[in-house]
Amino acid sequence: MGTISEDDGRVFDAPSDNFVYSLLPRWLWPYAQLARWDRPIGWQLLMWPCFWSAAMAAGVTANAGAFRPGQFIAHLFLFWLGAVAMRGAGCTYNDLVDHRIDDQVARTRSRPLPSGRVSRRQAWIFILLQALTGLAVLLSFNLFAILLGFASLAVVAVYPFAKRFTDWPQFFLGLAFSWGALMGWAAVFGTVSLPAVLAYVAAIFWTIGYDTIYAHQDKEDDALIGVRSTARLFGEKTKPWLIAFYSLVLLLLATAFSLAGLGWPAFGGLIIAGAMLFYQIVVLNIDDGDQCKRLFVFNNYVGMVIFAGLVAAIFIG
Rank of each mutant, 00 (worst) to 15 (best):
S258T: 14
L81Q: 04
A313E: 05
A256T: 08
H216C: 09
F67L: 09
V97E: 01
R87D: 04
F144L: 05
A62P: 07
G9I: 11
V137G: 12
F165A: 00
R100Y: 11
T238G: 03
C91F: 04
I271W: 04
P265V: 07
G190V: 07
R164A: 03
Q130L: 15
G174F: 02
A145V: 02
P49F: 00
V105L: 04
G226D: 04
A260M: 11
P30T: 10
S178F: 03
L132F: 13
D8A: 10
D13T: 08
W185V: 02
L132Y: 09
S5L: 13
T212E: 01
Y31T: 08
I286S: 11
Y279E: 13
N300Y: 02
A312S: 12
A308M: 14
G174R: 05
E6R: 11
M56V: 15
L259W: 01
L139A: 12
R39Q: 14
L253H: 10
G274L: 12
F189V: 07
L113R: 04
L23K: 13
D221Q: 10
D167A: 15
S110K: 12
G235E: 06
M56N: 01
Y93H: 15
A157W: 12
G65S: 11
M86L: 15
T3S: 14
P30G: 06
G180T: 09
I125N: 13
R164C: 03
V97P: 04
L147I: 06
F315P: 07
L270I: 08
L28P: 00
A275E: 10
P15I: 01
N18D: 12
A266Q: 03
L139Y: 13
Q44M: 15
F189T: 07
T191G: 02
P30D: 05
T3I: 01
L277N: 07
L78Y: 15
L129W: 08
A145C: 13
A223L: 05
A32V: 02
E236N: 13
L128Q: 10
F72K: 10
A151M: 12
W27L: 09
W124R: 15
A58E: 00
M304Y: 12
V188F: 12
R36D: 01
S229R: 03
F77S: 08
M1C: 07
D222M: 04
F150S: 09
D95Q: 05
L76A: 15
L78C: 14
F296M: 07
G274M: 11
R107I: 12
V297A: 14
D290A: 15
T61G: 01
Q130C: 05
W179A: 00
G70A: 11
A62G: 07
L175P: 06
A35C: 14
R164W: 04
T212Q: 02
R87C: 09
G116R: 06
R107Y: 06
A145N: 15
L129F: 13
V201N: 05
S22Q: 09
L175D: 08
L284N: 11
D211W: 03
G116C: 08
S247P: 01
N94G: 11
L45M: 05
G174P: 10
L81M: 14
Q217P: 10
V192Y: 12
Y246V: 07
A266L: 04
Q170E: 15
L135H: 05
A308R: 06
L113C: 03
M86C: 10
N18W: 02
R117W: 01
I146C: 09
A14R: 05
